[in-house]
C-alpha cells in the first residue's frame, strides 16, 4: 500500500499522476491500463479541487494506492464539502455539440475506465471525510 498527502492545489494533479504512474510502472502494469487509471484518478482529484474545496488550494487530500495481483484500488480522501455525484447529471451524448451539457464528463470517464467507483460521504456512518474508491480488475 502506498500513500501520498497533498493540498488541493491544481498544480498537484501532476504530482498525483507522477506518484501513481511511477508505482504502477514499477509493478509492471500494462501502459494502457496505467493511462486509464491515471485519467480516472485525475478526474476524481479534479472533482475534489473544484467541488469539495471550491477551488481553495489549501484543502487536504490523501490518496492510497493498493496494488494486488488481480486488482488496483485507489482511494482518495478529502475533508471538504460533500460533493454528491448524483447531483451532476451525466452528459447526454447527443450528436449535436450545441446540446452538450458541459458537466458530468469527469464522472462518466471515471466510470468508463474503472470497474467500480464508490463514493462515501462525510457525516455518514461516523465518517469525518469524503472518500472516492475506484477499483480496476486486472484480467
Amino acid at each position: 500500500m502506498d500513500e501520498i498527502k497533498l493540498t488541493s492545489d491544481p498544480k498537484n494533479l501532476k504530482v498525483i499522476a507522477d506518484f501513481v504512474g511511477k508505482i504502477l510502472k514499477k509493478r509492471k502494469i500494462k501502459s494502457d491500463i496505467i493511462e486509464e487509471i491515471l485519467l480516472a484518478v485525475d478526474e476524481a482529484a479534479t472533482n475534489i479541487i473544484k467541488h469539495s474545496y471550491q477551488e481553495k488550494t489549501d484543502g487536504n487530500i490523501k490518496l492510497i494506492l493498493e496494488t494486488g495481483p488481480d486488482k488496483i484500488a485507489v482511494s482518495i480522501f478529502d475533508n471538504g464539502i460533500t460533493f454528491r455525484p448524483e447531483d451532476v447529471p451525466l452528459p447526454v451524448l447527443s450528436k449535436d455539440i450545441d446540446n452538450r451539457r458541459p458537466g458530468g464528463l469527469g464522472i462518466f470517464l471515471m466510470k468508463k475506465f474503472m470497474d467500480d467507483v464508490t463514493f462515501y460521504f462525510k457525516g455518514t456512518s461516523g465518517r469525518d471525510f469524503n472518500e472516492v474508491r475506484m477499483v480496476k480488475y486486472l484480467n
Binding site: 499522476a17 491515471l38 485519467l39 485525475d42 478526474e43 479534479t46 455539440i97 450545441d98 452538450r100 458541459p102 464528463l105 469527469g106 462518466f108 470517464l109
Partner: peptide, 19 residues
C-alpha cells in the same frame, strides 16, 4: 501528453464560441 474532461470541455466551449 494528457487530456482530461477539462480539456474536452474547452474544445466544446471554443467550438461554440467560434460558431
Amino acid at each position: 501528453e494528457y487530456l482530461s474532461s477539462s480539456g474536452l470541455r474547452i474544445f466544446i466551449a471554443i467550438s461554440r464560441t467560434l460558431k
